[in-house]
């Protein structure tokens, strides 16, 4: 299959800046992401988490700097996938949403249905396969978005606040699926402002403010002893400007 040829990792952001007029949304970010434990991107609202992920996916082209996927510039997504905070459901059945993604990932027609059913089983939506996707609840939509993303057999899975709009039970189900994917070897990069979630999932933490990466390190060390005052304030629940 075509995606055997390319690698998405390491993902390298080289002096990446994103400007809207005079405002720097991302400010000279250097970041290298290799295979391994999940990376949780945290930071206050407006710190640039979503923009960082979009640039990392190739959805947004940075104003300055370079992004390299497995050493390639401007590489179209092959084994990387994205889950949005508010995923858009195709106006089709739940099953058809997954088969569509499978088709785009190059899955042969004859295997699509069985693989889609297996993916729906994996995210707990097998019973709803024939339902219209836009009619799902928020948590179900997010799990379907995960099934669509996993259909691409990603090496790198980027998730932007996937549980921000979900109740705790639904959020836990999403976390469980993400955790399983990580265990199966998918590199997870997940942006969140939920510190509990960060503690539960993280192997590594990337802490951002004002479009800059302020700290990066193993999660236990970060939570035990953050090195910047902003991170200390953020962890203490103070408002970080």
């Amino acid at each position: 299959m075509r995606h055997q040829v390319f690698h998405e990792l390491p993902l390298v952001l080289d002096a990446v800046s994103l400007r809207a007029g005079s405002v720097a949304i991302l400010d000279r970010v250097d970041l290298s992401i290799e295979a391994g434990a999940p990376i949780l991107v945290i930071g206050p609202n407006g710190s640039g988490k979503t923009s960082l992920l979009r640039v990392a996916m190739g959805l947004t082209v940075p104003t300055d700097g370079r992004v390299l996927w497995g050493g390639r510039l401007a590489a179209p997504p092959v084994r990387r996938a994205f889950v949005f905070q508010r995923p858009v459901m195709l106006r089709r059945s739940v099953l058809a949403n997954v088969t569509f993604s499978l088709a785009r990932a190059g899955c042969p027609w004859a295997q699509r249905r069985s693989r889609a059913e297996a993916l729906l089983e994996r995210v707990g939506l097998a019973d709803l396969a024939g339902r219209a996707a836009p009619a799902l609840s928020g948590g179900e939509k997010q799990r379907l978005a995960l099934a669509r993303a996993l259909a691409r057999e990603p090496e790198l899975l980027l998730l932007d606040e996937p549980t921000a709009n979900l109740d705790p039970a639904a959020a836990r189900r999403v976390e469980a699926i993400v955790g399983e994917a990580a265990t199966a070897g998918v590199k997870i990069v997940l942006a969140t402002h939920d510190l509990g979630q960060a503690r539960r999932l993280a192997g590594e933490i990337v802490f951002m403010t004002h479009g800059r990466v302020r700290e990066r390190g193993a999660a236990p060390a970060f939570f035990a002893a953050p090195s910047t005052p902003e991170a200390r304030a953020f962890l203490a629940g103070d408002i970080v400007l």
Partner: peptide, 25 residues
Amino acid sequence: RDYRDEFVAMGVGPAERVAALVWDG
């Protein structure tokens, strides 16, 4: 406008894009 980001993320090509939009619309 709704589908754009998802389609880019899924690597949907131009022809597939038109077909999918016409079918879903």
